[in-house]
Design a protein around this nucleic acid. Structure first.
Lengths: 361, 361
DNA sequence: AAACACTATTGAATCGCTTCAAAGTCATCG
DNA sequence: CGATGACTTTGAAGCGATTCAATAGTGTTT
């Protein structure tokens, strides 16, 4: 692949001039500029960004570290980040941690070696955050997405989880449900605790007392949803609704419903975080607290690049994104068992549902 | 961030020795090695991979260019590629083209500038493949995934589309369907043509003649599925089954069914490419030709890295991956309208379906 | 024509590694 | 004891850009 020296030679110019033409910062006379541009075209010259990076100490690459791109929430985050990055000339190095600390450590280390200009990180659970601390000390800006590492003051863009859960509970109560259970995520995770907090707040504001019995701790994986839902459904006193703290567990919950022949929402209602199947063919259509994945990624990338370019305030900023409650049939009102209209929530959280088509039964 | 010179100074060694310790290629006496390692630890030294890349002319980065990571097929491909890449010390630079040629060109150019060692490419449709040709001429290995650019001899890993469609049609016929329509992808795309070819072969081998009326050309997007399905369903002579050439269009097809009150599979059966919702809550559960996304990514990455390391045969190799036919309820046999068991296909293509739970109706 | 003020262009030094010829060490042997 | 040979270790050159002090070129003014 051609180098700047070859281009310079062919254009009868110096390497400095070629560089000036490429970067466009310094004025170059039209004639020379034309010669250089011709040479670049003729040689299909692509400036060696590696050499440039070494010299200017900037790579225009961002690391994107996430648990598993296969989880449908993260592609959106990635897209949001990438679109913003591309606009400003950055490329994304993406890597999956599989929620394994060791893998996260290796990846962060590799990214540091490769001198990415900054890292977008969805931290793995665990209190071992030393590699993150060290990376920051070395001067790499890091913006956390969706979660924050245990006990760390750091830039982050995340969902307003408390609000999401609270609005959801509020909707359930208004729709007529009172005995509402929650399947939480692992409570060592901030997200999980926040959602629980919102759930409790939602109950309290309606004057319903929070019962330990109705709080079951899951681990954000399908199987725990399945297991805990089964436990709930087999009780003598079944709750009338279940709030599930993420989408994957909701799948497990649905399976439990099927196996036990429990109908949703006729017997027990379901609402969950994450819009796991935002199309009309999912059955039953789930009422969900949806996260604006794209925006989270976009905001995160923007914040990160601002930091890189030094044009952001000094202290860590935590951005809380508004959740969207999407009301669908899994929390239909029980009062009139016939065809029902959506219960509209006039609160600040917007609601939108796909049009409800007639279902043949 | 510390450099190798600082490490050398602190360890009272030369830069050459430090390099030897890091790379482990040359023997270093235990004492010195220990000093160097201590210095590395103390300084939290991460060798500047950029400088190394410049010198050794290798970056250990692979480009991964795909249309849209938001399409649930691609995250799997990415994972497959990443896992293999990480094993061999490579990182992935991921970028989405949104099926826009211009964006693909920009991305490929950016990747070349950044001197990635190779590119995994899901090419955008279109006959303008000059940037790909030039990239290859410049010496960058490229492996195409899922598709191949128009009229190009190039390494590729893709689905055996003909076989997938053929096996699917065979299954439909065996289950009792005869009047089978197909909604194809854009026929300028090889994938789309191959699936059509398989469909035709499947009909012919059963002695059913191929009718132009039953072949509708879509564009792989949801709306075309919707539109074409509607057209089919409103005909006087409805087909009894529809083969949909990808998952996104299938969503549109389902919407048409709902709107027109057509039941699946009672009125018309559906089968499609891509396992868009591989869980039990999708309604109706779709019979699909599933692509091994993870394996496609993994094989692609392996092939690419073999090329990079020069340990692959010279001529372009096209790997065809076997599709998996997953039989679910959208193609249930119509013979006995009551509860039916799955029709098992003893052919070479494996079938697996999720257990069928009782559906309350 | 000389002096001056610009602007345009040049080219050597530099970024942080790797590499390899050359120099240094050390035990062994004649 | 000096020579030999087998390892170790050193340090300068070079990868391909950018940058900036120095130089060349151009036009204006006196």
């Amino acid at each position: 692949m051609a180098t700047i020296v070859e281009v310079a030679k062919r254009a009868r110019a110096s390497t400095g001039t070629v560089s000036n033409v490429i970067r466009g910062a310094v004025r170059v006379s039209p004639g020379l500029r034309a010669r250089v541009e011709a040479a670049i075209r003729d040689l299909d010259f692509h400036p060696n960004e590696i050499a440039r990076s070494l010299k200017v100490n900037q790579t225009y690459m961002l690391g994107m570290v996430l648990p598993d791109i296969t989880n449908p929430f993260f592609p959106q985050v990635l897209r949001g980040a990438e679109d913003k990055a591309l606009e400003r000339g950055f490329l994304l190095v993406a890597a999956n941690t599989d929620e394994q600390m060791e893998r996260e450590r290796r990846i962060v280390s590799a990214l540091r070696s490769r001198r990415v200009d900054g890292i977008l990180l969805v931290p793995t659970r665990g209190k071992d955050v030393d590699h993150i601390r060290r990376a920051r000390e070395s001067g790499i800006p890091i913006v956390c997405l969706d979660r924050v590492p245990a006990g760390m003051k750091i830039d982050a863009v995340m969902l307003d989880n408390v609000r999401g859960a609270q609005e959801c509970v509020r909707h359930l109560i208004r729709t007529g449900y009172r005995s509402i259970a929650i399947i939480t995520g692992p409570l060592e995770l901030g997200v999980a605790r926040e959602r629980l907090r919102g759930y409790e707040a939602g109950l309290r504001e309606a004057g319903i007392e929070v019962s330990k019995e109705l709080i079951l701790e899951g681990d954000f994986r399908e199987n725990s949803g399945y297991r805990l839902a089964k436990e709930l459904l087999l009780r003598l006193a079944r709750p009338s609704a279940i709030l599930v703290s993420n989408g994957v567990m909701a799948l497990g919950v649905l399976q439990a419903f099927e196996e036990l022949g429990v109908r949703c929402p006729e017997d027990v209602a379901i609402a969950n975080f994450d819009d796991i199947a935002g199309d009309r063919s999912f059955h039953p259509q789930l009422t969900v607290v949806s996260q604006p994945g794209y925006e989270i990624g976009a905001r995160g990338a923007t914040l990160l690049m601002d930091r890189i370019e030094g044009k952001a305030t000094k202290k860590p900023s935590v951005v809380r994104m508004a959740p969207t409650l999407i009301v669908r049939e899994s929390t239909r009102a029980r009062v009139s068992p016939g065809r029902t209209s959506l219960v509209r929530n006039p609160g600040s959280v917007s609601e939108k549902g796909h049009p409800q088509f007639l279902r043949k039964e």
